[in-house]
Amino acid sequence: MITDLFTQGIQMGIVLFVAPLLMGIIRKIKARLLRHRGASVFQPYYDIFRLLRKDVMMAENASWLYRVAPYIVFAAIWVAAALVPTFATGLMFSWATDFLAIVALLGTARFALALAGMDVGTSFGGIGSSREMMISSLAEPAMLMIIFTVALLAGTTQLSLIAEYISANPIGLRASLALAFIALIIVTLAENARIPVDNPTTHLELTMVHEAMILEYSGRHLALIEWAASIKLLLYLSLFGCIFIPFGMASAPASAGQYAIGIILYLAKLLLAGLFLAIGETAVAKMRVFRVAEFLGAALILGLLATILLFVSRGI
């Protein structure tokens, strides 16, 4: 019981404290690819600490919702990330929810943030919320189709069991999994406001979505939101790890050595995923906002195709 709680605690701690580092590494790689020197990989931590120390500057007409939303966002994303198997499967609370609920928790976080964007009543907040919800209302069904695909394959919607199934059974290359993989890449880019859907570093009005929504935030509230955003990115990259390369994960209860191997492999997987993300982001240009619909529509269709393939036969 105590050890179970302890490993679950480790998982919660890892997602919390590794997330900014992952963000820093991705930024560093991107900078190096562009022949900049780039900031230290620990810069996101410094940013968070600096923001935490600063006073909050808030609009006069901001309501309680505006003040509560960062905590809701942070808590919902943190809980969601804590329930995704990272270095081990079958952790203490893994049975409490399934893949569908994890995605829905991210939906709760987004709902709160989109409302907060509209709270002050500025046009930037409105444009950000409106576009964020447009993107998510196409990305979320695509994500659900991906869930359908892996759930039909593994016969369960529990992520832990999905990871165990895929690592235990030599399923080889599947057309359905390949389609789901491409769809998941698209959804990850869209949900985390990455290029080509959104640009995480810009403050240029015509191109920003996520940044416009949180434009009014400052101080500790902004720190929480930025931190939550990095956890969300870590969550999505962990999903790649746990669905497509679930190898080397410990299966709770396991020995300390297995957990250690699991953690090291998990960090390696994250690094690999981050590397690909950075390379991909450097290689493509951002697309116009209304092209995003086609981009995400492609993900939805791919996911649906993968699901239909599995409805016809579990062997495809």
């Binding site: 935490l52 120390r53 600063k54 006073d55 909050v56 500057m57 808030m58 609009a59 006069e60 007409n61 901001a62 905590y71 809701i72 942070f74 808590a75 943190w78 809980v79 804590a82 002050v120 009543g121 500025t122 046009s123 930037f124 907040g125 403050h203 009005e205 434009l215 009014e216 101080g219 500790r220 720190a223 929480l224």
Partner: peptide, 27 residues
């Protein structure tokens, strides 16, 4: 609730607690 209250506790102990009000920034 646990995650939210832990975060709130942490913020209130280690972060700045000042809230200043001003006009909306809006770029």
């Amino acid at each position: 609730l646990l995650a939210g209250s832990m975060t709130a506790w942490f913020i209130h102990h280690f972060a700045s607690r000042v809230i200043r009000r001003g006009p909306a920034w809006d770029c």
